[in-house]
Design a protein around this nucleic acid. Structure first.
Lengths: 194, 194
DNA sequence: CCGCTCATGTAACTGGTTACATGATTTA
DNA sequence: TAAATCATGTAACCAGTTACATGAGCGG
């Protein structure tokens, strides 16, 4: 809870240049990978991801790429096939350095964190359930992970070929699943689930 | 990318009752654990968490608890010690069932996902760095995990005593760290880092 | 009495969401 | 030719962010 004082009513003189959001940087990366590519391609790539972090909605992506273009991180150019309009984007040199700065090192504070797991968030309050509800919870959580596994594999099959780093992402997904299963196992075994 | 059609200009007749956000439900849980407790306590609990998911800012929490109270999920009552104002909240029965519904099962879609890891997001684009930058990246990532470990331990020491389920959360944190270290190791060993 | 923590908020903004809308092209 | 998918957007909304602000109580 920081409290950085500032002269009331005034905006800082130094260019504010609002920090890029996590999604903006991620999109920068996706464009970089698919150069040149359209906003729609970005949306598709986001939508097929096994992560629920972003919704890939048109209302998020179109204004976002427009923003990045205005800032000079992307350059877009219209291309039409027949009567179909299509605007394709590539990274500018500034866009590439913004991407590299985000990837790090150094990492910004948002990256220094435990992973976010919605199941963990919920588990924290399992004391609010009855013992039998807790058993059902663990069972359902296992099924959820099975479901996630299908998504991870599907994603992996589609991407591992193009790019060696995609394999690392799939590996992360698989190890993630293994670890969360082990975690569920530990606590089904422990007394907390009783 | 769903496209559920709706008669233009009209709002659905069925009570919209906007779904509670993840943060709202999480706060419901925190209040439940600390009943009765003030918004400030919630903020502190959020702030000391090793997760960067939420900022615990006053601007988020005060309006949020007010919202939950208006909806009848929390009931607050003023208490003053001397001249110091303090508003303490507890869950209403409806608040408790909202909490239980969120914990699940069943899980809402947001919970059916791989964990979100900012390092994984960045790793996806490591091809944009030079090999030596990648080596530095892996090194920095390891240090980041050391830092996170300190945070997790600190949190664990503070909470494990009160509540058996807090231990599960700490366990999750520790297993998470172990898995991400192993992941970094695998890929430092692999050819992708070269 | 100074500075820190406790405690409660508000104001302005903005990024992302849901939902709408439109028209071209492909496929069954 | 109807339905699905490609492709691009916009409008309204709102949750959460940053920053400001205030004042009580406490330790040195």
């Amino acid at each position: 809870m920081p409290r950085t004082p500032r002269t009331p009513g005034s905006t800082p003189a130094t260019t504010p240049r609002t920090r890029l959001s996590e999604l903006e940087c991620f999109v920068l990366g996706l464009v970089w990978q698919g150069q040149p590519c359209a906003a729609y391609d970005i949306r598709r790539r986001l939508a097929e991801s096994p992560s629920t972090q972003w919704s890939a909605s048109a209302g998020a992506i179109y204004p976002l790429v427009a923003r990045l273009e205005r800032r000079g991180l992307l350059k877009g150019r219209a291309r039409r096939t027949g009567k179909r309009a299509r605007r394709e984007y590539s990274l500018t040199p500034r866009g590439l350095s913004a991407l590299r700065a985000w990837i790090g090192p150094p990492f910004d504070d948002a990256a220094i964190t435990v992973t976010h797991d919605p199941l963990r968030s919920r588990a924290r309050f399992l004391a609010a359930l009855t013992p039998s509800q807790r058993k059902a919870w663990v069972r359902a959580a296992r099924e959820t992970l099975d479901e996630v596994e299908r998504l991870v594999r599907a994603w992996g099959e589609r991407h591992t070929s193009d790019d060696p780093f995609a394999a690392l992402v799939t590996l992360h997904g698989e190890m993630d699943l293994a670890f969360r299963r082990a975690w569920l196992g530990k606590f089904a075994a422990g007394r907390a689930s009783k």
